[in-house]
Simulated scan of single mutants.
Amino acid sequence: MSSTKLYLYTRFERFWHWAQAALIIALLVTGFEIHGSFVLLGFGSAVTVHNFCAWTWLVLYAFIVFWILTTGEWRHYVPTFVKMFEVMQYYASGIFKGEPHPVPKSERIKHNPLQRITYLGIVSVLVPFQIVTGFMYYLYNDWAAFGWAFTLSTIAILHTIGAFAMLVFSIVHIYMTTTGHHPFSHIKAMFTGYEELEPEK
């Protein structure tokens, strides 16, 4: 059996991946503290850190979108249903039987159909949803001047729902990183840039 390494993740891609991971964790921790789930930094400090991380992520998000659009990386996020059922079946049962992945990684196919539709949903729906509800939360004292008739509790609930969605995605994403031919092979790839493909039998 032989294995092949492919350079799939550029330095910037790896940078924004880990930067986003750190920001998401910080935002989740401080966000849940703001909601009174626990006490770690204190309410005031939690709000300050949360706002700083939110602005930082907004700037990073703008750079990520610009990079994806200008480098041609957007092609890896175009939804496709080709072999979607096979991929779902693989993660539901095939992976536990040692079956090969139905859509192996390559320079042309960095993400499988399930990853594509998930990542596209995160980038185009969930993150913008959190940005909009977060801004509305942040500008609460100016609502009267804008003529907004929302209630703070409504925006808080919507923003929290988005946070839970991001938490669920993060947990599933972490689990999925362990599904390579070695438990840490996918994580290693996001440090080195090289994805080690499954050995050819």
Score class of each variant (00 low, 15 high):
Gly134Met: 04
Lys83Pro: 12
Val125Pro: 08
Ile161Gly: 07
Thr151Tyr: 05
Val87Tyr: 09
Leu114Pro: 03
Leu139Cys: 08
Thr133Leu: 08
Trp143Ala: 08
Leu139His: 09
Tyr137Val: 02
Val123Pro: 01
Ile155Asp: 04
Ser106Gln: 08
Phe63Gly: 03
Phe66His: 14
Ile155Asn: 07
Pro128Asp: 03
Leu114Trp: 14
Lys83His: 09
Val127Gln: 00
Leu152Tyr: 14
Val49Asn: 00
Ile64Gln: 01
Tyr90Val: 14
Thr151Gly: 12
Phe52Pro: 01
Trp57Phe: 14
His111Arg: 12
Tyr77Asp: 10
Leu114Phe: 13
Val87Trp: 09
Val49Gln: 02
Ile161Arg: 01
Ala92Gln: 13
Pro113Asp: 08
Asp142His: 07
Trp74Tyr: 13
Ser106Cys: 15
Ser124Leu: 08
Gln89Cys: 11
Tyr137Cys: 07
Thr154Ala: 10
Val47Leu: 12
Cys53Val: 07
Lys97Gln: 12
Gly162Met: 00
Tyr138Cys: 06
Ala163Asn: 07
Val132Trp: 07
Phe66Lys: 05
Leu120Trp: 15
Met84Phe: 13
Thr80His: 06
Ile122Gln: 13
Trp67Asp: 00
Ile131His: 02
Val123Trp: 00
Asn51Asp: 04
Thr48Ala: 10
Thr80Lys: 06
Gly98Ala: 09
Val82Tyr: 14
Ile131Gln: 01
Gly121Tyr: 11
Ile117Lys: 08
Phe146Cys: 10
Leu158Asp: 02
Trp57Asn: 02
Gln89Asn: 06
Ile68Gln: 08
Glu107Gln: 13
Gly134Ile: 00
Gly121Cys: 11
Pro79Trp: 14
Thr70Tyr: 08
Tyr77Phe: 11
Pro113Ile: 09
Ala92Thr: 15
Ala149Val: 13
Val78Ala: 08
Pro113Lys: 03
Gly162Ser: 05
Phe129Asn: 03
Val59Cys: 02
Val65Lys: 00
Gln130Ala: 04
Ile109Phe: 15
Thr160Leu: 04
Thr70Ser: 13
Leu139Gly: 03
Phe135Met: 09
Val47Trp: 11
Tyr61Ile: 00
Ala145Cys: 05
Phe66Asn: 06
His50Val: 03
Phe164Asn: 08
Tyr61Pro: 00
Thr160Trp: 02
Pro79Gly: 12
Thr160Gln: 06
Leu60Thr: 03
Pro102Gly: 10
Glu99Asp: 12
Thr80Val: 10
